[in-house]
Design a protein around this nucleic acid. Structure first.
Length: 882
RNA sequence: GGGCGCAUAGCUCAGCGGUAGAGCACUACGUUGACAUCGUAGUGGUCGCAGGUUCGAUCCCUGCUGCGCCCACCA
């Protein structure tokens, strides 16, 4: 028997889903849920919890529907994040950064990975994510390494990967190049300094505005706009670079914007993206003044050597002031680039890096979505995808760190590069190239951007480049669920690499869920201290309640504002479920495998079967549309509103009737007994259906209740072979609901105490309805809190309700009826009805409406007018009799 | 500067060319043998604004306003 208190903790820990997740069905249709591998350093935050829950719902649902579901977990080695984390730990333990050799550091990172990496996997189990953990993959495992090397070499041989010397975003904290996507821009306070650049051989000067005075040592020109008349006479002359004394030209270039600063801009090709382009146009020298840590190093006066750029800035300003070359300073707010991982202010730098040419792959990726092979949900996210792919830049894939896939390129003594799958192959290529044996080849020290291997995830996890069975079966038959923030980082790159490497798209559907925000709609962040920990919520409300809440709130395209309290939605619902099952149990409703829907006679049972069937149909549609909110909503309303509030209430008199078991048959009404058995079976049956459709969303309680009910295996409801016509039963119950509802409503309106069971007489419109009422007498009386009588005594005052079919409900009120108030109420009723009726009548008298509106709509309006007219007429009659 | 999304009850959000919905909150009553994590009945909305299309617009179109986001620029 279920406990009186619903306590998820009492059973959630007892269930593990690894086994069922690992079951393969070789002959079944394949379906893959592509789980975004969390960082090996990660722990479960609320965004993961949402994302994984939605995927798990799909995976479990598809399993129930008979698919061979592959839901494979993995971990991402997360190059920069992980290396920074371990270096920090080492630093805290007294090992300064940069003191370990490559091998030693990698050993430390692997040790850390084995001991404390992947904690998130256990947290996923608490949430009930049904991955096949036996198939766990890592983006840096041996198979991935082989695959990454293979793909790199293929890209290189196809001329898509190249080594180039270009300006890139450099992170001086990590001392590595990063890709454009890893740059985050933030507005920060700063200064604009107006500096005098003296004209050569003159006392005249030109004022240049800059936010980066320390780069003055890298200046190679001052640019003005060719159409800027203020400076027309300056073009072609030279200025003396302040603090340096070097002479540089004033050039005319359209890049200089007369409306910005003073209209004259210093050109520092080594340290600014735009200046780099200007320098190329004017064939200017590149004067690099910084090292990899962002310190001024070369081409600067001695006193600046070794100073950090920000320190150098202060010194430059003070010196300029001394020399009276600083005209003025302005405080401004400006947007500067920072590294997304390190948070450091980035430096544009010209370095040698590996790049991938993206145009062709991007164009193929665009086509895949354009022609519908890959679908975004909601569809509008494809705009973002297209926008990025249309303006795509070469992808800088080399990183100057050690934790990651080492670039399979080797250099000969003269710097000649050999890209190959192994040192042996590189050597062979070198021998061929040099025409003799090479003593030593040096492997490129860089590793690949983490996203390079992530982009291969859909096929690497299936065994690519081997021609595996898994690959043939599952590849492309896939959905991926993720947040919009990694559409560029991951989704677009998977499509590009997928098509390039395999010729096929990696997945069919991309479901983009919303962001989980705090109650004010703010992003959760450590600094704002508004983080909600999903594990706390699991501990407080249970994993199922959290999962159910996520499903309910997951409306497409909407962010989710969430607080602890939101989870009460799920908790309350599951409490309701728990209690109704307990009640059924108390009344001897246990799952009967022999229960045959086609043999059900009782209208109540028929009604609930119909409602459940309708619910299941709706759920199936909802989940096909990825409408998790609708899916949970259908279950919620069917269980709570139909099953608990009506069905269970209506059957109570039957369940509590004395008819019990065949062995004490004697003396009891056989009809009653059979009816009771029917109702018990139907009740248990309905509960089992609820539990089954809830299983994808709330697997723990589903398992628990199935155990209680004696259900061996959870399957999806199957309504094939049902020959029952439910129409009449549905009509019956709707009629009963209307009667009970109207009596309740009136009783409260009249402020009649709940415990006072007034007499009620129902005037049926025909014999059929009369019979119907007889069989629901007890239920109606209990639910409405009244005595049903055949006739209310003549002297008693009554008031009436007219039902939709014309039947009348008379409430006997003794002497209490306030006639004028009652008149008022009825007139109010009529007014409401008249408004609706007149609206409909107006439409029906409109020739255009009759002509152009669909037949269904016209018929419906006619019916509306009929029903309302009849009711209005009856009520008018009642009024005039008062 | 370019683009995307959102605007519906006090709050959080569904919905949709044909009588405006849910949950929470609120009000009244209720502890009746499943459930107070509950029940019953209510209150509450000219569906952001202005035009247009349509027999009919909260829904479709255009413009505007407000909020959020993405990309680009930023001497």
């Amino acid at each position: 028997m279920l406990d009186k208190n619903f306590d998820p903790k009492s059973f959630e820990n007892n269930f593990s889903f690894e086994l069922e997740a690992s079951i393969r069905k070789p002959d079944a249709e394949p379906f893959m849920v592509l789980l975004p591998p969390p960082n090996v350093t990660g722990s479960l935050h609320v965004g993961h919890a949402l994302c994984y829950t939605l995927q798990d719902i799909i995976a479990r649902y598809k399993r129930l529907r008979g698919f061979d579901v592959l839901f494979q977990p993995g971990l991402d080695h997360a190059g920069i994040v992980t290396q920074l984390l371990v270096e920090k730990k080492l630093y805290d333990g007294g090992v300064p950064r940069g003191t370990l050799t490559r091998e030693a550091l990698l050993k430390e990172i692997w040790l850390w990975k084995e001991s404390s990496g992947g904690a998130i996997l256990d947290q996923m189990k608490i949430l009930g994510i049904s991955c096949d953990f036996s198939g766990l993959r890592f983006t840096l495992d041996e198979e991935s390494k082989r695959a990454v090397t293979k793909l790199f070499v293929k890209l290189y041989n196809d001329g898509l990967i190249y080594l180039g010397e270009r300006m890139i975003n450099w992170d001086p904290a990590i001392c590595s190049a990063i890709s454009d996507l890893e740059v985050v821009e933030r507005e920060v306070p700063g200064s604009m300094w107006y500096i005098r650049y003296m004209l050569e051989h003159s006392n005249n000067y030109i004022v240049v505005a800059t936010t980066r005075p320390e780069t003055i040592f890298g200046d190679v020109a001052v640019a003005v706009n060719p159409s800027d008349e203020r400076y027309a006479s300056f073009v072609g002359r030279n200025v003396v670079l302040p603090l340096v004394g070097k002479v540089i030209p004033i050039i005319a270039d359209a890049y200089a914007d007369p409306s910005k600063g003073t209209g004259a801009v210093k050109i520092t090709p080594a340290h600014d993206f735009n200046d780099y382009e200007v320098g190329k146009r004017h064939d200017l020298p590149i004067v690099d003044i910084m090292n990899h840590k962002g310190e001024l190093q070369q081409n600067v006066p001695d006193m600046f050597c070794g100073l950090d750029r920000l320190e150098a800035r202060k010194l430059v300003i003070s010196l300029l002031k001394k020399k009276d070359l600083l005209e003025r300073t302005e405080s401004i707010k400006h947007i500067l680039p920072f590294g997304d991982r390190s948070g450091a202010l980035l430096e544009p730098r010209i370095t040698k890096q590996w790049f991938i040419r993206m145009e062709q792959m991007a164009s193929n990726a665009v086509s895949a979505v354009r022609d519908g092979r890959v679908n975004f949900l909601p569809k509008y996210w494809e705009n973002l995808y297209f926008e990025w792919l249309h303006n795509i830049e070469p992808w800088c894939i080399s990183r100057q760190i050690w934790w990651g896939h080492r670039i399979p390129a080797w250099y000969g003594p003269d710097g000649q590069v050999f890209v190959a799958e192994s040192l042996e192959q590189a050597k062979a290529a070198a021998v061929k190239f040099y025409g003799k044996n090479v003593v030593h080849l040096e492997q490129d020290s860089d590793v690949l951007d983490t996203w390079f291997s992530s982009a291969m995830w859909p096929f690497v996890t299936l065994g690519w480049p081997n021609d595996s069975e898994a690959f043939k079966k599952f590849y492309s038959n896939t959905v991926v669920v993720t947040g919009f923030d990694i559409i560029f980082f991951w989704i677009a790159r998977m499509v590009m690499f997928g098509i390039y490497a395999t010729g096929e798209i990696p997945f069919k559907n991309v479901y983009i869920h919303g962001l989980v925000r705090d109650e004010k709609g703010q992003k959760m962040s450590k600094s704002k201290k508004n983080i909600i920990d999903p594990l706390d919520l699991c501990a407080k409300y249970g994993a199922d309640a959290l999962r159910y809440t996520f499903a309910s709130l997951a409306s497409p395209g909407r962010d989710i504002k969430m607080t602890d309290k939101s989870v009460e939605l799920g908790r309350n619902f599951l409490t309701k479920l728990w209690n109704v099952v307990r009640f059924a149990q108390m009344n001897g409703c246990f799952y009967n495998k022999e229960f045959n829907i086609n043999e059900v006679k009782n209208p109540l049972a028929k009604w609930i079967i119909f409602k459940v069937q309708e619910m299941v149909k709706n759920i199936e549609q909802a989940i096909d549309d990825y409408r998790f909110d609708e899916m949970s909503g259908y279950i919620y309303h069917c269980l709570w509103d139909c099953f608990c509030d009506w069905y269970m209430e209506l059957i109570k008199p039957i369940l509590s009737s004395s008819a019990t078991a065949p062995e004490i048959l004697e003396g009891y009404d056989l009809q009653q007994m059979l009816l009771k058995k029917d109702i018990r079976d139907a009740t248990a049956w309905a509960i089992v259906q609820f539990v089954q459709v809830l299983y994808p969303i709330t697997p723990f309680i589903a398992k628990k209740l199935c155990g209680e009910l004696g259900v061996m295996e959870i399957t999806w409801p199957d309504f094939s072979g049902i020959a029952t016509d439910f129409t009449y039963a549905v009509k019956e119950i709707e009629f009963i609901r209307e009667i009970v509802g109207s009596i309740r409503s009136l009783k409260q309106y009249l402020q009649i105490p709940v415990f006072e069971r007034i007499n009620v007489q129902i005037n049926a419109i025909n014999a059929e309805t009369y019979e119907l009422l007889k069989s629901y007498r007890e239920s109606v009386a209990t639910m409405a809190g009244v005595n049903l009588v055949d006739a209310i005594a003549g002297e008693e005052r009554t008031i009436s309700v007219v039902l939709n079919d014309g039947a009348t409900v008379l409430l006997g009120l003794g002497e209490r009826v306030d006639i004028s108030r009652e008149k008022e109420r009825l007139i109010g009723e009529i007014k409401k009805m008249e408004k609706i009726r007149n609206d409909a009548m107006a439409k029906l008298s409109n020739a255009d409406f009759l002509d152009k509106a669909s037949d269904d709509v016209v018929t419906e309006h006619r019916k509306r007018v009929d029903v309302l007219s009849r009711k209005i007429e009856k009520i008018s009659g009642i009024i005039s009799n008062l």
